[in-house]
Design a protein around this nucleic acid. Structure first.
Lengths: 215, 215
DNA sequence: GGAAGAAACCGTGTAAACACCGGTCTTTAC
DNA sequence: GTAAAGACCGGTGTTTACACGGTTTCTTCC
């Protein structure tokens, strides 16, 4: 019995390379690859669907989060293994909440990939120790409804974050947001507390990590 | 006759995967892989040296730029093929200036990789059309005399940029860079002029755009 | 209808960031 | 040998960013 895999990654070389690795495993076979989530939905309509989807998080058009949500909604039996460049707790949790059954960093060894695939089909999930640790120390509570919790930012704060990642001063941001500059500094202070940071550079890095602002 | 290849990439899975792809080419063989430039210099001391080095640009400890410069200095006969995530003109030019004989985006097809390797050993370089176009429209004139122009940042400035994208103050950055905090502010001021920006947030955005700092 | 909480606002003080001025020393170029 | 250029360091003053302390107004909820 061979399990089928589909790879979604916009880096063709990487996708092709991972395909080569997987096809070396006797019990797994790569059906096809796509460059983003949108193409995945299209291929699902006209091609056979796999047992497992290897999902890159940073994709254009339809990213890993959206794709994972779409998959769990339409094909809940298909196992999602998230692939990420970064060891980022928030990204991890967000993917798990959106239905990913496993999370793999791209700097893991091929054996780990094989092992993750095996766990996925046997146990139904692949949660190595470090993921369990992150979930415990993290704000992971329920499991069914994909809902935000600790880092719930309102619209004003998100708008402020966009401006924070520019060369505007807080006073200039206040003019654009039609409020007092002390209010803007209030947004900043609550974000400092919520996000556990201390400087404007921290705000910028957060906004970029979360995709609120793009480079 | 087989040509030997060494892969330098901090993403183990990707490195291993690319290795699998290359080992499918009958005329190329991967000797070993390393996770950063520093390890490459170490392995060069005790292991056989390859004909070709596949060099990822975004690596920790010793990045692609530094590694390329080191390679051209100590082993000028070894061909460097740069691997990058982003299609960025400045990065491309900087790598070519540091001695890379070719530049490949990670979203190219495996055939292109094979073709690039062939060109590399036959022609000595691999410059596809789009690179030539970039070089023409860019500020790249001759090939031998390294003439700097618009945005030529030195090592100290680049190191400073990495620290600028953290929550450290300039004083703390100065401690890490073993110099006066006024010197650090000097780096900042010259970068403000060179890059046409006015604030630290501008520095952060620049560093991220150029891949000097990763998210 | 009063408690609880959030959102907007404000004052004050300190630390950091930025602007503009100056200098020495070394390297490179002619 | 001198001029030019660049790396490093310094002083001074203004503006911005951040910390800590508040008030008022408006929901929301029981």
């Amino acid at each position: 019995m061979q399990y089928s895999v589909v790879i979604a990654d916009d880096h063709l070389l990487i996708a092709e390379a991972i395909k080569a690795v997987i096809n070396q495993f006797p019990d797994y076979r790569v059906l096809y690859q796509v460059a983003n989530g949108m193409l995945l939905t299209e291929q699902f309509a006209k091609q056979p669907r796999p047992d497992i989807v290897l999902l890159d998080i940073n994709m254009p058009v339809m990213n890993g989060f959206e794709t994972a949500a779409w998959l769990t909604k339409h094909y809940p039996h298909i196992k999602i293994l998230a692939l990420s460049m970064r060891d980022d707790e928030k990204t991890l949790i967000r993917m798990l909440r959106n239905g990913a059954k496993g999370y793999l960093l791209k700097n893991t060894r091929p054996d780990d990939l094989h092992h993750a695939l095996d766990e996925l089909v046997q146990q139904g999930f692949y949660y190595p120790d470090w993921i369990a640790r992150k979930m415990l120390q993290g704000m992971f509570a329920g499991d069914s409804p994909p809902e935000e919790k600790a880092t719930a930012l309102n619209d004003r704060e998100i708008l402020f974050l966009e401006y924070a990642a520019t060369e505007l001063t807080y006073k200039e941001i206040a003019e654009k947001m039609y409020c007092s500059h002390r209010t803007v500094e209030g947004y900043r202070d609550t974000l400092f507390i919520k996000l556990g940071i201390k400087t404007r550079v921290g705000l910028v890095m957060y906004a970029l990590k979360e995709g609120i602002t793009k480079i």
